[in-house]
Design a protein around this nucleic acid. Structure first.
Lengths: 146, 146
DNA sequence: CCTAATCATTCATAGCTTGAATTATATGAG
DNA sequence: CTCATATAATTCAAGCTATGAATGATTAGG
């Protein structure tokens, strides 16, 4: 029997704060007709980590069929180009267009704005500590590091 | 034009890490036939912050009709009792049963386990810093504090 | 070659959540 | 007191996201 509260647990707080943040991010993205996963896909392409849809699906931890519809939407917006891989014509490789790069930059700026709102009341040291620890946790959990 | 990457943004990292954590939490809860929101509701009841279903819905930021089904499930499990408020018979007040308290304790322990897994590679100072900053952020964003 | 594997795609479906309609109860004005 | 209006819980239909199975195209290996 211990006195730990569920709500003071890191797992719970990360979960709820994470939900709040993606909700806010989602709200800003709506103006561009995008969802967070669309932007995640754009970021993945920019990182050059993956180009084939299947690789993308694995890295994003989603079903391959979902990548299809995300890519459909992005292609529709002109943010991404689909090209058959000449080495293996089963593969569809996705390439960021200039427009896609700009869109990603805009969305990244929106996320950065959310960051400053979020850390508004935090001291610079706290903010920096948070940044560092979240980075470490991301790396240790197979999430996009950079 | 700046060089910030989406994936190194706090908003994005909190979002993805949050998703990972609630996914893991959810997996552990499955054994008890619960979802994270069920446990969130139990925790809210224990905190004594709200008892009527409508108040609960507001505090959880979900539709009142969702509280109905969460409460149905919890009642089914014997974790919660529904009682008409004698002062206002429209209101249904939810009360934790002893069984519910135990269930919450079990789930809280599961969350605490996830915490130790998560912070496994972190220094004690980093872990403490994370705990404190997340606490501050939770408070500043209207999420359950303490 | 021919069989088995792989990639993208489509489609049906499941799960979570919301909003509108319904019922019961309460409140306030006349 | 009574009627009109507001509030709480509940039910129900519907939307959205995501998945998994089936299909078609292409490749790889014996």
């Amino acid at each position: 029997m211990n006195g730990v509260k569920l709500t003071s647990t890191l797992a719970f707080r990360l979960g709820t704060l994470g939900a709040v943040m993606t909700e806010r991010f989602s709200a800003r993205l709506a103006a561009h007709g995008l969802k967070p996963k669309h932007v995640g896909l754009l970021a993945l392409l920019e990182s050059g980590t993956a180009t084939s849809q299947l690789d993308i699906a694995k890295l994003m931890n989603v079903a391959p069929s979902l990548v299809v519809s995300l890519a459909d939407r992005l292609e529709e917006l002109g943010a991404v180009r689909r090209e058959r891989d000449p080495m293996d014509r089963r593969r569809q490789t996705l390439a960021l267009t200039e427009e896609g790069r700009e869109l990603l930059a805009t969305c990244t700026a929106a996320a950065a704005e959310l960051d400053t709102e979020l850390t508004d009341g935090l001291s610079p040291e706290e903010t920096e500590a948070l940044r560092i620890v979240l980075g470490t946790l991301a790396r240790r959990n197979g999430l996009p590091a950079d």
